[in-house]
């Protein structure tokens, strides 16, 4: 009887399953640690298909591009990776968090 309001996580899981049914390879990125004023809490997911399509989010949009790129590599070689993003590094303008926070993102293949 209760109307199903798809929560964000259920939407992501459903999309991963749809991709896999269509024989796409998929990687899942998860924030494992967030420091300071990062916009999404630990546990936030971004799922990426081998086509480069993605659902979910790990930031306000500032690092999604770099995470998708890393996810495509994970899909390619099957090896999980941990990435860190912050404003303090040299690449801050291209793949940093404008908010001043710092996040660690774990990217794993869905096998």
């Amino acid at each position: 009887m209760t109307r199903k309001i798809e929560s964000e996580i259920d939407e992501i899981l459903a999309q991963i399953q749809r991709w896999r049914q269509e024989r796409h390879r998929v990687a899942l990125a998860t924030i494992v640690h967030a420091w300071g004023s990062s916009p999404r809490p630990a546990g936030s997911h971004l799922a990426v298909a081998d086509t480069g399509s993605f659902v979910g989010s790990v930031s306000g949009g500032c690092v999604e591009g770099a995470v998708v790129e890393a996810a495509l590599k994970v899909i390619e070689d099957g090896k999980p990776r941990e990435l860190e993003f912050g404003v303090s590094d040299e690449q801050a303008w291209s793949v940093g968090l404008a908010c001043g926070g710092r996040i660690s993102v774990y990217v794993e293949p869905v096998e």
């Binding site: 259920d10 991963i16 399953q17 999980p80 774990y106 869905v110 096998e111």
Partner: peptide
């Protein structure tokens, strides 16, 4: 994440059961 883990996760959510996934980061 293994396909079986993904399926078990989806199943737990459909049954409204809390579930935790624990990952060892060095080897997955």
């Amino acid at each position: 994440m293994k396909a079986a883990t993904l399926a078990a996760l989806a199943h737990a959510r459909a049954a409204r059961l809390p579930v935790a996934l624990v990952t060892r980061l060095r080897d997955g």
